[in-house]
Simulated assay, not measured.
Amino acid sequence: MLSPMDDYPIHQIAEPVRHVATSDRNFYDRYYFNCYPTDNNDTFLIVGLGQYPNLGVMDGFAVLRHGDHHIVARMSKALGADRTDTTVGPLRIEVLEGLQKLRVVLEPSSEYDLSFDITFDATIPAALEPKHFRRQLERVTFDTSRFLQTGTWSGHLTVDGEEISIDPDTWRGNRDRSWGVRPVGEAEPPGRRAVDGIQNFFWIYSVMQFDEFTISVIMQEDEQGRRIVEEAMRIWPEEGRDPEWLGRPEHDLIFCPATRDVTGATLTFHRPSGEVLTVDCELLLANHIGIGTGYGLEQDWRHGMWQGELVVQGLRHKVHEFEPMQRMFSPVDNLSKFHLTEGDQTFDGTGLFEVAAIGPHERYGFTSFIDMAPERETDNTEERL
């Protein structure tokens, strides 16, 4: 079946645009946005929308961390033939100017206590990240591409009846577009994987927005600390200026005792010259994107899962009531401050520190999927969770 996109010279395979190159059920194509104020640390909004062509599903979510409140709006519908349709019930994304300006709207609903009409305006060129590839047995489990941008936000957000003005002078965020193969939809029978075991997922993804530039960091490691994907690049706002490789990134995470909650981190970039750049990461507010949005292990709502022709739901929790086991099986997006030391210069920025320590990881002493961080002599970071 044809769609309006077939009138453009953009085909990559000998099929209409609505057919992707692989029939793998796990193919996806997704938007991600986050939005936060720089003048307080109690609000962190994350929005996502994805299409799953081989599952026939499109879904989206918005999750707001507002003080101690975890507010989720989520929606799912049958995917039609037109891939330019980026509306799922009350949620829609409008590309106003490709790779520069996008509008994100969540209409009010009785299902949830949240709505917004906000526009992202990029402050750096879109930067393509390295391919993310991983196998288990012979099955490709990850084969994805992604690009990122940082920028400012304008518009308004309403929560619990209170309207908040979003001013581009004080509201920032980053967005990405990713597509390819990653686990989505209903769980598949594990087959031999049940004998070989589930792969760990140790992951750090940080996007740091400074006034002068943006730094993007990616690290995924297996149980022994071997790198599956890594990147550390500085992206300049000037068009035509190539991103700068910062060298091999290393991490030092601080865990809250008896949990796997990361409460602080130091990242270092080891340049070929021997110079070391250091970033102290101050984690301010955790948005548990795995709870209620589709990123987690909830059996009733996962990205790409068939829910029906159109379903819209809302959820609300108190963050302090989340159990450690509930928090530990998905990435957590932390609103953060960053303090970069480069030679005799220092820079202060804000942004995203996304982290997951799921399953075994020798460096931090995790030997299974359920053991927790050991007790420390002192720790005063639990309030940031």
Rank of each mutant, 00 (worst) to 15 (best):
T87C: 07
V312Y: 05
S109Y: 08
F116T: 05
T214F: 08
L96T: 03
D82S: 08
A194P: 06
T43L: 14
L310Y: 12
D42K: 10
A356E: 09
P53V: 10
R175E: 00
G185C: 03
E231H: 14
G197P: 04
H66S: 04
M58Q: 14
H317M: 04
E231A: 15
L114M: 09
R139G: 04
E15Y: 14
S368V: 05
N34C: 01
D252E: 15
R92D: 04
D379S: 11
A81Q: 13
T378D: 09
T158P: 04
S336E: 00
V88W: 03
I370E: 13
R226D: 15
H317V: 00
G304H: 07
E250F: 08
P324N: 07
E362P: 05
V159Q: 09
N334L: 02
M372I: 03
M1Y: 13
L283Q: 06
R177H: 15
W179E: 00
Y32L: 03
Y36R: 03
T367I: 12
I204S: 11
H69G: 05
V20K: 11
E375H: 12
E188V: 09
S109F: 07
E298R: 12
G161D: 09
E162W: 01
Q224Y: 13
Q299F: 10
R302M: 07
D59H: 03
F269V: 08
D176K: 00
F347N: 05
D196K: 12
E275M: 11
D252W: 12
T123N: 02
E186I: 03
G155C: 03
A122P: 02
A232M: 04
T263Q: 07
F255P: 06
A122E: 04
H132R: 12
L55Y: 06
G89Q: 07
R193L: 13
Y52Q: 05
G50P: 03
V17G: 01
S368Y: 08
A127I: 01
G294P: 05
Q209I: 06
S76V: 01
L297C: 09
A126G: 10
V63K: 02
D29G: 01
A258M: 13
I118V: 13
W203N: 02
A14N: 15
T266Q: 15
E250N: 13
L340D: 03
R135Y: 12
R103H: 04
P272L: 10
E162F: 06
H69W: 06
T341N: 09
Y32G: 02
T150Q: 04
D82A: 08
P243N: 13
T87Y: 02
I228D: 04
M325P: 04
Q51E: 01
D379V: 07
S336H: 02
I164A: 01
P183R: 08
S336Y: 02
R376Y: 10
I46M: 00
P272K: 13
I358A: 00
D42P: 06
G292Y: 00
R234G: 10
D6A: 12
L64Q: 04
M208C: 08
S165N: 13
D42C: 05
F213Q: 05
P90M: 08
